[in-house]
């Protein structure tokens, strides 16, 4: 993978994370999900792990520089 390409992908991932971690996407999950608790924390942890998995895949997969 070329350096600049990796950087561009990381920036893309950052934008995805920004979208996932901020309203209004956040509001979609901010409703009672289980026993009256909001689904928000669960969603946040899930999205968090997805982002990190993607980041690990991108960064560990690249061999350059």
């Amino acid at each position: 993978m070329k350096g600049s390409l990796l950087q561009a992908r990381l920036v893309g991932l950052l934008l995805l994370a920004l979208v996932l971690f901020t309203p209004p996407v956040l509001l979609v999950f901010d409703r009672p999900a289980w026993l009256g608790f909001s689904g928000l924390p669960l969603y946040l942890f899930a999205a968090w792990l997805v982002i990190l998995a993607l980041a690990a895949w991108l960064l560990e997969g690249s061999k350059d520089e």
Partner: peptide, 28 residues
């Protein structure tokens, strides 16, 4: 744990955005 907490609904936070100071803008 969560079931027990749910029964004492009045004191316990619902873990939603409404508990966050400043709401959505405070979040950002």
């Amino acid at each position: 744990l969560f079931q027990t907490a749910a029964q004492k609904s009045e004191q316990i936070t619902r873990l939603g955005l409404e508990a966050v100071p400043g709401g959505a803008s405070g979040w950002v």
